[in-house]
Nucleic acid binder design. Structure first.
Lengths: 110, 110
DNA sequence: CTGATCTACAACCATTTGGTTGTACGATAC
DNA sequence: GTATCGTACAACCAAATGGTTGTAGATCAG
């Protein structure tokens, strides 16, 4: 059963989302605590709109989720995106291990 | 002892490097086998110069290393960059686990 | 109802990115 | 020695990115 099929384009967006220090900081913070979008915006030396865009980028790749509460939008960490990213790096790591085994085999033969 | 201090700018470049399907494909291939730059270029529907730039991006963040052999440059996988990326995601994962524990504690109290 | 707050989004701008072609140069083959 | 191959790099271009300001719709406070 294919649980979730990650397209290359989705992976592009996922790693792109992680490739910004402000966005990585947002991910950390909203995993630990709860912040509204404007609560987050207050933390950074940029406009509200800029932060709002960063949140939208993170939301699109499921690194973050928003939940409406009154007139605020509460931003929380979403494990899904992180798991997807880890899955790719784990796969690369597995390729490395296979390579190491292969080399060990060759040495054992010789 | 600080083994390696990763600046935010370095992390930006590292994840940026991973945010391109062609570059991810190059990383996989050169981890398994050996390719010259032009050997890689033959695999993709783009110019030699484009592929060469991709390799340069990967080399800059230590996802790949080049070694001169005659007139060719052999491109190989470099574990270093991958480890750095994994380290960040591992850290995020740790934050998630702490969060889970904290929630469990609160439930235990109540 | 009115005013303030929180969010969303459009329009705009500068810089970066991912591609191109063209040029140059060292290493190899003949 | 000369032609070819593999690489590097500059210059250029279109599109995407990360920021801005401004406008507008909901929701809450008084």
């Amino acid at each position: 059963m294919v649980v979730d099929q990650l397209t290359e384009a989705e992976l592009d967006r996922l790693f792109q989302a992680l490739a910004d220090a402000t966005r990585r900081d947002i991910v950390r913070r909203v995993t630990v605590g709860e912040y509204s979008v404007s609560g987050l915006a207050a933390l950074y030396a940029m406009s509200f709109a800029a932060v709002q865009k960063h949140v939208a980028v993170l939301e699109r790749v499921s690194l973050v989720a928003k939940e409406k509460r009154g007139r605020e939008q509460i931003v929380r960490g979403n494990h899904e995106g992180l798991q997807k990213a880890r899955r790719l790096l784990d796969e690369y790591e597995a390729i490395w291990r296979q390579r190491a085994e292969r080399i060990a085999d060759i040495l054992a033969e010789g």
